[in-house]
Simulated assay, not measured.
Amino acid sequence: MTGFGVEVRDLTARYGTTTALDAVSFTLRPGVITGLLGRNGSGKTTALSILAAFRRRTSGTVLVDGEDPWENERVLAGTCLVRESGDVANDQKLKETLEFLGDRRPLFSRELADTLMDRFELDPLSRPDRLSRGKRSAFGVVVGLASRTPLTLLDEVHLGMDAPSRYAFYDALLADWVEHPRTIVLSSHLIGEIERLLEDVVVLDRGTVLTMSDAETLRSGGITVTGPAEAVEAFVAGRDVVARQRLGRTAQATLVGTRADDASRARQTGLELGPVALQDLFVHLTDRPAGATTEESR
């Protein structure tokens, strides 16, 4: 099993007078970890809820493993959506929830679940309504990873966790995905933390797709320039600078867009060129005035 592929075409979702998704189109490659990135209110949760058949779409086409997921028993059995709240019954002990999932999820790994329960110091006899926000989030991670579904959707599931727990989650996700490849969608705005996990990226903003690309191609759309502050400022003059840092006489600037002579100019002036962080590109892509169109902001 390498995971379910997903194809979304012209997907629109409305709630009353609010349009959460406006003719959105994107694909998710099977067996790949994709970052679904966007600010709060961008439409991430709505998109994932429709993929998991938690919500109906207003219009458009959604295919999961080649089929419409709505009321599709086969596709739903192979899809797991976990949100930060954990989406588990509050009146059941954690061990009872794991037993329930073990009986109904054919690929569920009780061994992995037990390992993660220990790692996150979760008491199997506790109930979700008696856990802290961080522990509830950690249990959501246990459910999402141990289910090993062909399509695993993790919607900001790690936000309630402290930094050490989040990094333990990232390590566990990557290690288990390497051993058991499947399609994983990781929704987040903590991009600096998760970018090492991502092979593909979809960026949503105000219900539209700003960009869809593999992460390396997206990163190659810009460069960081590091060196003496005056030389850096001369190098970036007139360029599209999206981030700056300075420590004493040393400065670093992040540019969107590259030029053919960048490498030679950098060598001549003693500057170092490096890759651009997805976080900086994300801020650049989504930083536009209210009321501006996507095209106007580019």
Score class of each variant (00 low, 15 high):
residue 206 R to W: 06
residue 126 S to I: 00
residue 137 S to Y: 04
residue 275 P to S: 15
residue 38 G to K: 05
residue 186 L to E: 00
residue 109 S to M: 01
residue 202 V to Y: 09
residue 183 T to W: 08
residue 210 L to H: 07
residue 85 S to P: 00
residue 173 L to S: 02
residue 218 L to P: 03
residue 198 L to Y: 09
residue 139 F to A: 08
residue 151 L to D: 03
residue 155 D to T: 02
residue 46 T to G: 04
residue 95 K to A: 14
residue 12 T to G: 07
residue 5 G to D: 15
residue 241 V to I: 11
residue 142 V to Y: 12
residue 226 T to V: 14
residue 272 E to V: 13
residue 49 S to Y: 01
residue 219 R to Y: 10
residue 13 A to S: 10
residue 291 G to Y: 10
residue 264 S to C: 00
residue 289 P to R: 15
residue 266 A to D: 00
residue 280 D to R: 07
residue 296 E to K: 12
residue 200 D to Y: 06
residue 271 L to K: 06
residue 288 R to T: 04
residue 57 R to Q: 08
residue 157 V to F: 07
residue 238 G to F: 09
residue 99 E to S: 09
residue 73 E to M: 06
residue 156 E to Y: 10
residue 41 G to F: 11
residue 242 V to Y: 07
residue 231 A to Q: 10
residue 24 V to G: 05
residue 292 A to L: 07
residue 78 G to R: 06
residue 209 V to P: 10
residue 133 R to P: 01
residue 96 E to R: 12
residue 184 I to Y: 02
residue 8 V to A: 05
residue 240 D to Q: 08
residue 181 P to A: 01
residue 276 V to C: 13
residue 233 E to H: 09
residue 158 H to T: 13
residue 137 S to F: 06
residue 29 R to K: 15
residue 223 I to R: 15
residue 169 F to P: 03
residue 220 S to R: 15
residue 24 V to F: 11
residue 143 V to S: 02
residue 53 A to D: 07
residue 188 S to A: 03
residue 196 R to W: 11
residue 96 E to C: 01
residue 73 E to I: 10
residue 89 A to D: 10
residue 93 K to N: 00
residue 65 D to A: 15
residue 206 R to E: 10
residue 270 G to H: 06
residue 127 R to M: 12
residue 185 V to S: 00
residue 248 G to W: 14
residue 225 V to M: 05
residue 51 L to E: 06
